[in-house]
Design a protein around this nucleic acid. Structure first.
Length: 593
RNA sequence: GCCCUCGUAGCUCAAUGGACAGAGCACCAGACUUCGAAUCUGUUGGUUGGGAGUUCGAAUCUCCCCGAGGGCGCCA
C-alpha cells in the first residue's frame, strides 16, 4: 500500500510499528496499510485489532476493541518526536483502533504532480519484473463471422496485455487462428455442393460469413450432410489439391477480414499461431500419448481418449478428454496440446495465459491436467483467464444459426453514426474530418469501456441502448474530462509553469485528485495480479470524477499565484493520467469532442 | 448425479477480511453573459437471496438451503 513515491517515509513508520509489536511480544511481521477511506483526506492507515486479538488470546483477555484503540494511541504517541509527527506526515491520530497518518499535503502534492509531469506517458509504469508471460487471445475461426460475442475477448485480452506490460512483465501477445477443423470443412462442403465456382462480391468477408451460416443450417437440417462432411474431412487429411487450394484462398479472405478488424480496434499481436500448423504434430503427439499409456486408443469402435479421472485418481472431476476422433481426424484438443508445448519452447515463458470464455473451463483444466500427467512441469504455469459471454436481452445467446449475431462492423458503424450526431451538435465548428475522427474515438471508446467495466465473471447483456450510451459511467465521460483539462491548458498556450515551492492550503477536491493520481501504479499492479482491467476502468472513471470536482470548485486560469501555477500543473498531471489510464484500456483520448 | 460461476438500491454494477456497503441509470428539484452543461448540485432509495459457522471484525472465507446461468467422450 502507499505509493512508491512515499516508500521512504512509509517504511520508517513501519519499522517503528514493528518494533512496537516486538516489544509487546506480538508475532506480527508485516504492517497492512490501507488508504484513509474518507474522501478529501489523504494518507495511510493501519489497524490494531489483530494485535489486540492476539494479545487477548495469549491469556491477557480483555476487550479487543478498546485495547486496539489503546495500542493505536500508544503508537501514535511513540511516532511523535517532541509532539511533531514523523517526517513526511503532518498529522497522526488514533481513532477507533486505527492509526491514521496524514501526508504533508503540499510537499507530497508537489512530488506527485512533479513525477507525473516528468514521466509523462511513462507515469504509472512499474519496474521490470523480468518475467515473460504469453497471453493468447481472440482466437477467431476462419470462415465464420466475427461478431460482438467475440469482441469481449479481443478487448479484454488487449487490455490485459497492456496492463501486464505496464506492470513490468515482458508480454507476448499471441493469437491462435482456427483455420482448420470441422467448421472449415463444413464451409468447404457447402461451397462445393451448392456454390461451386462462385466468386465473392465486393465484401468478401461478409460473403464468407453468410455462406457459413448457410453451411451450418444445411449441416444441421440435412441428415445426408454428416457422412458427406466426414468424407470431405478425409479428403482434407489426404491433402486433396483441389480442396487445399480452395482452403488456402478462402482462408486468406477471412484472415484479411481479421486484419481489418484488428486495425480498426487497434489491437496488435506479436505472434500468430494457426491450428493448421499443429494439426500434424498433434496427431504425432497423440501417438506418443498412446505409447506412454496416457491415452487409450479405442479405435475403430471408439475414439482416442485420455481417462483423466482414472489417471489422476479423481472422481467425476476431470472426466474424459477425447484427443482424436475414431476416424483419425483431429479435434481442438489434438492441436491444443502440442501448441502448449510449442509456446514454452519458443518463448521460454514464465506464464501462459489463455483468454477463453468460461464455458471451456473444464476443457482447459483437462488440457492442463493432461500435460501435467505427461510430466510437463510448465503445466502449472498455464492459466485460464475465463470471462463470461455476451448475451442478448432475454438471456439469448448469439448464434450464427439463429441469425441473432450482431456483426462487429455493424456495431461500430452504428456507434460512430450516433457519436457523430452528438459531435455535430456539441461542436459544429469542427471540420468534417475532425468530427469523424472524434466520433470514431468516442464510439470505439464507448464500446470498449462497456466490455471492460464489469467483472470478467459477469455476463454482459448486449443491447444497443446501453452499449451506445454516452452518459454517466462510460468512456465519453472520461474522455470529456480529458478534453476539459486540455481546453484549460490550451488557453494557457500549453505552457506548464515550473514548480513553485510556495505552500498554500489545498482544497479537499485538490487533495482527492492528487491522492487518486498517486495511486495509479498501485492500481496497475493490482489489475495485473488479478487480470482485471475492470479495476483500471473504475479507476479512470473515479479519476475523471475527481477532476470534474476540481474543475467545478477550483478556478485555474483566474486563480491568484501561487495557486494558479500549481493548479495548471495539477491540470496537466490529471490530463496525463486520465490519458494513460484510458490507454491501458485501449481507448484514445481526443483533444476536443 | 458431479463440477463451475453468479445472487448487493427499482435497473446495471462497485466495494485488498476492516471505519458510514458506494457509483451510474431512472425519478424528482435546481445550475450555462462564469476555464467546454457529453458537466455539476441536491432529494429519494439497503435485513448484501435465507440460515449457521470461523474471526476482534464477514457482502467478502467455510458449510447447508433457495434461485439463475453454464459445463460434463469424438463442436470449438
Amino acid at each position: 500500500m502507499g505509493s512508491g513515491m512515499f516508500q521512504t517515509e512509509q517504511s520508517a513508520v513501519e519499522q517503528q510499528i514493528l518494533s512496537y509489536f516486538k516489544k509487546n511480544n506480538l508475532p506480527i511481521e508485516t504492517v497492512q496499510w490501507n488508504w484513509i477511506p474518507f474522501s478529501g483526506h489523504w494518507g495511510i492507515s493501519t489497524s490494531f485489532f489483530q494485535a489486540a486479538a492476539l494479545e487477548a488470546r495469549s491469556g491477557k483477555g480483555g476487550n479487543v476493541g478498546a485495547r486496539a484503540n489503546e495500542m493505536a494511541a500508544e503508537v501514535a504517541a511513540e511516532l511523535k518526536q517532541n509532539g511533531q509527527p514523523p517526517a513526511g506526515f503532518e498529522r497522526v491520530e488514533a481513532v477507533k483502533g486505527y492509526l491514521n497518518l496524514y501526508f504533508s499535503t503540499f510537499s507530497f502534492a508537489s512530488r506527485v504532480v512533479g513525477t507525473v509531469l516528468t514521466d509523462g506517458k511513462q507515469y504509472g509504469i512499474n519496474q521490470k519484473v523480468n518475467q515473460r508471460v504469453m497471453v493468447e487471445f481472440s482466437q477467431p475461426n476462419t470462415h465464420k463471422a466475427f461478431h460482438v460475442g467475440h469482441l469481449r475477448n479481443v478487448i479484454l485480452g488487449n487490455a490485459v496485455c497492456n496492463i501486464l506490460t505496464s506492470a513490468g512483465y515482458d508480454v507476448v501477445r499471441a493469437n491462435y487462428i482456427g483455420d482448420i477443423g470441422l467448421h472449415v470443412i463444413k464451409w468447404l462442403w457447402n461451397y462445393l455442393t451448392y456454390h461451386k465456382g462462385e466468386q465473392p462480391g465486393e465484401d468478401r468477408y461478409r460473403w464468407m460469413t453468410d455462406l457459413y451460416t448457410e453451411a451450418d443450417r444445411r449441416y444441421n437440417d440435412d441428415p445426408e450432410a454428416e457422412p458427406q462432411v466426414r468424407a470431405l474431412f478425409a479428403r482434407w487429411d489426404a491433402r486433396d489439391p483441389e480442396l487445399v487450394n480452395l482452403w488456402e484462398q478462402t482462408r486468406q479472405w477471412s484472415l484479411e477480414g481479421f486484419a481489418q478488424i484488428y486495425k480498426t480496434l487497434n489491437v496488435p499481436f506479436d505472434h500468430y499461431y494457426y491450428e493448421s500448423e499443429v494439426e500434424e504434430s498433434g496427431k504425432e503427439f497423440v501417438e506418443r500419448m498412446i505409447k506412454m499409456g496416457i491415452a487409450r486408443d479405442e479405435r475403430p469402435d471408439g475414439a482416442v481418449i485420455v481417462p483423466l479421472d482414472d489417471l489422476a485418481g479423481t472422481k467425476e472431476k476431470y472426466r474424459v478428454l477425447v484427443v482424436l476422433r475414431s476416424d483419425g481426424t483431429s479435434l481442438y484438443s489434438t492441436k491444443d496440446l502440442p501448441l502448449a508445448v510449442k509456446k514454452f519452447e519458443m518463448f521460454h515463458l514464465d506464464r501462459s495465459v489463455y483468454v477463453i470464455d468460461v464455458r471451456q473451463s473444464l476443457y482447459m483444466q483437462q488440457i492442463y491436467k493432461t500435460l501435467d500427467l505427461m510430466g510437463y512441469d510448465f503445466a502449472k504455469k498455464c492459466y485460464h483467464l475465463a470471462y463470461e459471454i455476451v448475451n442478448l436481452p432475454g438471456n439469448v445467446t448469439m448464434s450464427s444459426r439463429d441469425g441473432t449475431v450482431v456483426l462487429l462492423e455493424d456495431l461500430i458503424n452504428e456507434a460512430t453514426a450516433r457519436a457523430l450526431k452528438i459531435v455535430e451538435e456539441k461542436n459544429p465548428d469542427l471540420s468534417l474530418e475532425d468530427k469523424q475522427a472524434v466520433a470514431r474515438m468516442v464510439a470505439l471508446g464507448g464500446i470498449k469501456y462497456s466490455m471492460l467495466s464489469r467483472d470478467n465473471t459477469k455476463i454482459v447483456t448486449f443491447d444497443w441502448e446501453t452499449a451506445l450510451t454516452f452518459e454517466g459511467q462510460a468512456a465519453p465521460y472520461i474522455q470529456y474530462a480529458f478534453v476539459r483539462a486540455n481546453s484549460i491548458l490550451r488557453k494557457a498556450n500549453q505552457q506548464i509553469p515550473d514548480e513553485k515551492p510556495v505552500e498554500f492550503e489545498l482544497s479537499p477536491q485538490e487533495i482527492q485528485l492528487i491522492d487518486l493520481i498517486s495511486r495509479f501504479s498501485h492500481e496497475i499492479a493490482r489489475a495485473a495480479a488479478e487480470y482485471k482491467p475492470m479495476l483500471i476502468a473504475n479507476y479512470s472513471f473515479t479519476l475523471a470524477q475527481a477532476f470534474n470536482d476540481f474543475y467545478n470548485t477550483c478556478p485555474v486560469l483566474s486563480a491568484e499565484e501561487p495557486a494558479r501555477s500549481f493548479r495548471l500543473r495539477l491540470t496537466a498531471a490529471a490530463r496525463q493520467v486520465i490519458s494513460n489510464s484510458l490507454a491501458l484500456l485501449g481507448i484514445d483520448s481526443p483533444e476536443v469532442m
